[in-house]
């Protein structure tokens, strides 16, 4: 046999060995690939990498990789996962509530139905923030000002008009008896700049995610006057919920994982198991504490119906408030 042929055959065997190793691993997920629809350093990225860190440290899986795929308001990553589904057997796509909002708005054609929902992992509740020396002490104060003159309550937010920040505040004001369509919402480029907006006094109230707001409010320059959690949070027990203030508004901005469509049942079970295993480890607890996350674990079909419920709620809200025609 010629040496070249020998090399060829040996490498072929090596390749086969390599793939069969892969196939064996399908029994129990050994490596996880995270698909992140945003650049490094954001909320999605942090959650995926935190989750991966917990998985590695606790030994749930032995290998993780992270693919940041930006573009199309997050739509490109979803499209890619669907297009290349057959070879995304151990891929977890991270996403969150804006996915529901954006598919309702038609920014991208797909929705969660086109993917396999694996599990939600953490929740970020919405909250309303005012500057520390603001006359607004409770949400009722804010609603009172708004009812007298909507122009006196300019609302800052870190995202575009029609996003969750916008319509959650509009909904809360509606529950308080105001006309939500009169709300003047001032979008900023990110939560940090929006926070600066209320501190300079150019806007009076900020609607944003709790984890981002907490980081900044703990600096002592701002106060959180209401959060959309069902009850007070153990990590921030001094923040009143909207429900206890008499406004029946509960809203969780979930972050969770999705798998490619057409995943085999065995693989699907495995993925759910891997995620739930990782969530119960001390390693995840450390990551969760470090980032101040709140656990929100819905799995598989339960997650699916949670999403359906949320989609229903949001579309009713957005229609009422005039964001959807």
């Amino acid at each position: 046999m010629k040496p070249i042929a020998l090399t060829y055959i040996t490498s072929l065997f090596a390749l086969i060995a390599l793939f069969s190793a892969d196939i064996q691993c399908a029994e129990r997920l050994d490596k996880v690939h995270f698909l992140i629809p945003a650049g490094p350093g954001g909320g999605w990225d942090g959650t995926a990498r935190g989750m991966g860190e917990a998985m590695l440290k606790s030994g749930t899986v032995s290998q993780t990789s992270y693919e940041n795929l930006t573009g199309g308001g997050g739509g490109r990553a979803i499209a890619k996962l669907i297009e290349t589904a057959p070879r995304q057997q151990n891929t977890l796509l991270i996403n969150s509530t804006p996915m529901v909002v954006r598919s309702l708005q038609g920014i991208f054609p797909q929705s969660f139905r086109d993917l396999k929902p694996i599990a939600s992992v953490i929740a970020d509740y919405s909250c309303f923030v005012v500057a520390k020396d603001s006359p607004i002490k409770t949400f009722a104060d804010a609603a009172e000002i708004f009812k007298q003159d909507p122009r006196k309550l300019k609302a800052a937010g870190g995202s575009v008009k029609g996003s969750t920040d916008h319509f959650i505040l509009a909904r809360a004001l509606e529950l308080a008896g105001g006309n939500p369509r009169k709300l003047i919402y001032v979008p900023y480029d990110g939560g940090g700049k929006a926070m600066a907006g209320i501190l300079t006094g150019e806007s009076q109230i900020l609607s944003t995610g709790l984890s981002e707001a907490l980081d900044m409010a703990r600096a002592g320059e701002a106060r959180i006057i209401g959060v959309t959690a069902p009850q007070r949070l153990t990590d921030a027990p001094d923040i009143p919920t909207l429900i206890e203030q008499g406004y029946d508004l509960q809203f969780a901005n979930w972050r969770g994982f999705f798998a490619a469509p057409g995943l085999s049942d065995a693989n699907y079970e495995n993925m759910m198991l891997t995620v739930s295993d990782a969530l119960s480890t001390d390693a995840f607890e450390a990551v969760r504490k470090r980032n101040g996350w709140t656990l929100l674990h819905h799995e598989g079909s339960e997650f699916y119906s949670f999403l359906e419920r949320q989609e229903q709620e949001i579309s009713v809200l957005m229609r009422q408030l005039g964001f959807l025609r």
């Binding site: 693919e67 290349t84 070879r87």
Partner: peptide, 16 residues
């Protein structure tokens, strides 16, 4: 650095 570069579709198809 931990940045993921997807292998080409050509090789992926081959792997399947």
């Amino acid at each position: 650095l931990g940045i993921y570069l997807a292998p080409g579709d050509l090789w992926m198809g081959w792997l399947d």
